[in-house]
């Protein structure tokens, strides 16, 4: 498990798009990942308010979800998003760091199901939440 976690950590931090968005991996446990994204004026979606673009929040949640799948106990070899449904509850407060917590709550032989919630520095009121289905490519010889 530890071996896989290290690999997942290396994998996630090597994703060019995640790096470009300044994402930081904060926690990785069996089927659980926490990824943060510091505020950056380049990611603003509404110049009138300084609120981060929904697309950047989606990218954060997709990354956290993929990481949660990759560190699931079944030790997948690879994953890709099949579908992601995002709800935007409120605008993220400008200037604040965003944190996405993703949980891979169920896997079948070939599909992983994930829920993810994003908060800013006020963790009591979520900014966005998503549910997703991901492909699960198993390593040779592993069983579903």
């Amino acid at each position: 498990m530890t071996h896989n976690k290290k690999l997942v950590q290396q994998f996630i931090t090597a994703l060019p798009h995640a790096t470009a968005l300044g994402m930081e991996l904060e926690l990785l446990e069996d089927g659980l990942a926490v990824v943060a994204m510091p505020y950056d004026p380049r990611f603003v979606g509404d110049p009138a308010t300084g609120v981060i673009h929904g697309g950047a929040v989606s990218a954060l949640m997709d990354t956290a979800s993929g990481a949660a799948v990759m560190c699931h106990a079944s030790q997948p070899a690879a994953t890709a998003t099949i579908d992601l449904r995002i709800d935007y509850m409120r605008p993220a407060t400008p200037g604040q760091r965003l944190t996405a917590r993703a949980e891979c709550y169920h896997v079948t032989r070939s599909v992983a199901f994930v829920r993810v919630t994003t908060t800013d520095e006020d963790s009591s009121r979520p900014v966005a939440a998503a549910t997703g289905a991901f492909t699960l490519e198993r390593t040779k010889g592993s069983r579903g």
């Binding site: 090597a14 994703l15 060019p16 798009h17 995640a18 790096t19 470009a20 968005l21 673009h53 929904g54 697309g55 950047a56 989606s58 990218a59 954060l60 949640m61 997709d62 990354t63 993929g66 690879a78 890709a80 998003t81 992601l84 995002i86």
Partner: peptide, 24 residues
């Protein structure tokens, strides 16, 4: 652009970049 890559092994565009593009 290189910075859109999600999986450098394939390589493939990051699902988050695709989502952002569609939302934009």
């Amino acid at each position: 652009d290189e910075k859109l890559i999600g999986n450098p092994m394939l390589p493939a565009i990051h699902g988050g970049a695709t989502a952002a593009f569609l939302e934009v």
